[in-house]
């Protein structure tokens, strides 16, 4: 594992702890998009089905289990939060899920001549998870643009997700150059996903880093 991948993973891990801290210590899920969190849970469950058939490393196994468990817990907390109507969580997620699923059925890494149908279904779900992750932040971005009272911790959560994506891009450049590692589906979707965060970082810069004490 190279340093870029590791920093990316640690930033991703930090994003979970930031969000959990916000939910637990403020006892409020205001500003957190349930739709984005439900999409992330879907992403992790679909992508990490290979927990059952492929062992890469204990690092990978534990991170995958944590990502699924933590996102499931976050979805549970936000969904059952009574103090938050989340009326601004209005993104139409079917416009994300259905195109991602259709695209995954046509653009994937299946090899029907090799492995059985179950392995190929896993390939389709892997591609679906990649496409869905690329756009899963959009409901959260929409909420951030609509809410005035977005807490800093939610913004830091988003920033750590953006850093995670940026370092994965560096990781892929490194791996392509030194290892010949190349998953075009993940790389193209990863570039799209990182570009979506560019919009967020402008907001972050304006609302958090430039915020003056009143």
């Amino acid at each position: 594992m190279n340093i870029f991948r590791f920093v990316g993973d640690m930033s991703h891990l930090a994003s979970f702890f930031l969000l959990l801290a916000k939910l637990i210590y403020t006892k409020s899920s205001t500003g957190v998009s349930l739709k984005t969190q439900a999409l992330y849970l879907t992403v992790f469950v679909c992508r990490y089905l290979d927990l059952l058939v492929a062992f890469v490393s204990w690092y990978n196994e534990l991170m995958k289990i944590f990502f699924i468990a933590a996102s499931a817990y976050i979805v549970y907390v936000v969904a059952t939060s009574t103090r938050n109507s989340n009326a601004s969580d209005t993104y139409r997620v079917e416009f994300l899920v259905i195109p991602a699923l259709v695209l995954a059925c046509f653009v994937n890494e299946t090899h029907w001549s090799k492995g059985g149908w179950s392995l190929n279904v896993m390939e389709i779900l892997w591609a679906f998870s990649i496409y869905l992750e690329a756009v899963a932040v959009l409901p959260q971005l929409k909420m951030l643009h609509q809410l005035e009272d977005t807490t800093n911790i939610t913004m830091h959560y988003m920033a750590s997700l953006g850093i995670y994506r940026a370092f994965y891009l560096l990781n892929w450049v490194y791996r392509l150059y030194y290892e010949g590692y190349w998953h075009p589906i993940a790389v193209v979707a990863g570039i799209v996903q990182t570009l979506l965060y560019a919009d967020f970082f402008i907001l972050y810069y304006q609302s958090v880093l430039l915020r003056l004490p009143s």
Binding site: M63, F67, W182, H183
Partner: peptide, 10 residues
């Protein structure tokens, strides 16, 4: 060279 690599990322 580009190789078909296993999926070892998160």
């Amino acid at each position: 060279h580009r190789v078909k690599a296993p999926k070892d990322e998160l």
